[in-house]
Design a protein around this nucleic acid. Structure first.
Lengths: 256, 256
DNA sequence: GAGTGGTCTAGACCACTGT
DNA sequence: CAGTGGTCTAGACCACTCC
């Protein structure tokens, strides 16, 4: 990376800087390599640290950089493709955990208004909330909250183990007995709440892709799932084998 | 909205501020209503304008606010569900424009490295690039760039109209003649390039959902599409009717 | 021209990581 | 402990929209 000064251009400095840095990443850096620190980079380009950070923010949003407090800024590996296809209609947890989901927790709660509106339940009705974590290549990529109305799993044994992973698995097991008619899925951008951020090893407010799934049984919405995927490291694939390469990143050398 | 001072809390000010503002949006504001300006809000909460802006950034990322330079900050309507399902395997433009796509431009170019790697073409081969714009409820929601290798449309009449919408439609028409075996789709977060930003009426760097589609013919990737959707206003729906409500926003009153 | 959000600066201090 | 990124401040000026 050069010591180039930025010339006067009509576009914002941080945007131009982003381009310059992106090119430098392509040509001069390997995946995992650590960049000079922010104060150093800012000085090198003759801008304030805040401006440099604005450029780094962009590159991090695009999944090209990874910043860790106390450590430094490293070149991120290409995003990993995570399959979220709905071609096979099946309940969560059906694949016996092969897709990286692990049940974590279970509790009884009242669904928030938006979820209650999706479920055909009274807004005050109690639902089981099952928390799952999805791990991919050894890294947590998604945190999910499943809302299962008590009426959807009437045969669930009462309070034997009121919470914990065992209870969560019991709820999922009960779902397998229902005939799933179909599922509807949507993706949108969000920012990580405190609890999700913690599970995903990110700071609160980190950009996430929120996948909402509606599980339909006999025309009714029997279960609603809200899964938040790390937007920086994940690419969601639909009906694909995950080998879709998308971003501008060329194949990069591996850092030593 | 109150004049509440922020108390000392272990969480970042901007994050707490985000929560306070989000609650205020729910209770005190209607969709389309204009907020006090940033300097005013910052003073009211006793923080620097930059800190307030960080909170507004979050809310805008979540699609709850809309900021327009020279105008002000308004409460955004709920995100609109845009169907991007792949249940029916069909070529772009097959639906006779009912899905809001309009062909805009066509040109000959060499595909960028990443796209060339998806297409089974030599990286130097020329491809037709078809630009389309998707309009939804009168607003542009997506800009797409289709990469069609010349070898995929061998019967395309040569240079009668070398560019423009007519040429773009001609390329799309040629595609309908091929037997489409399937398509693979992926979604990831990106930031709008200058040209996309302009078409989408956003600033460069605005967050977008990048949908990459691979159209498969006889095991080969015949066409690659890169569509960038406005992340602030769009929710991408898969195999659904678009009535999935996702975010935390309750139903809001309409502004006068 | 007045008012808005967007960019940029030059500092300061904090929270966290490694040694 | 030193070094990193994360937060925050108090200003300044610019680009844009609307009257």
């Amino acid at each position: 990376m050069g010591t180039t000064q930025l010339e006067a251009v009509p576009e914002p400095k941080y945007w131009h800087l982003r381009t310059v840095l992106a090119d430098a990443l392509d040509s001069d850096f390997a995946v995992g390599e650590i960049l000079p620190n922010e104060r150093e980079l800012a000085a090198r380009f003759g801008v304030a640290r805040a401006t440099l950070r604005q450029a780094l923010d962009q590159l991090e949003l695009e999944g090209r950089l990874q910043r860790r407090r106390g450590v430094g800024t490293t070149v991120a590996p290409p995003r990993v493709g995570v399959d979220v296809s709905t071609t096979r209609h099946e309940w969560p947890g059906a694949g016996a955990g092969g897709d990286g989901w692990q049940a974590v927790e279970c509790a009884l709660a009242t669904a928030p208004g938006t979820v209650a509106r999706l479920l055909s339940t009274a807004s005050g009705e109690e639902v089981h909330t099952v928390r799952r974590l999805r791990v991919w290549h050894g890294r947590p990529v998604a945190a999910e909250l499943l809302y299962v109305p008590a009426s959807s799993v009437p045969d669930l044994p009462a309070i034997d183990t009121p919470s914990g992973p065992a209870r969560a698995r019991a709820v999922l097991r009960e779902l397998q007995r229902l005939d799933l008619d179909g599922q509807e899925r949507a993706v949108e951008l969000g920012s990580a709440r405190a609890d999700d951020a913690k599970e995903l090893d990110r700071l609160p407010g980190a950009p996430v892709l929120v996948v909402t799934t509606r599980y339909v049984v006999q025309g009714r919405t029997a279960v609603v799932s809200l899964a938040t995927y790390r937007a920086d490291t994940c690419r969601l694939t639909f009906g694909a084998s995950g080998d879709l390469e998308i971003s501008d990143q060329p194949q990069e050398r591996q850092a030593s």
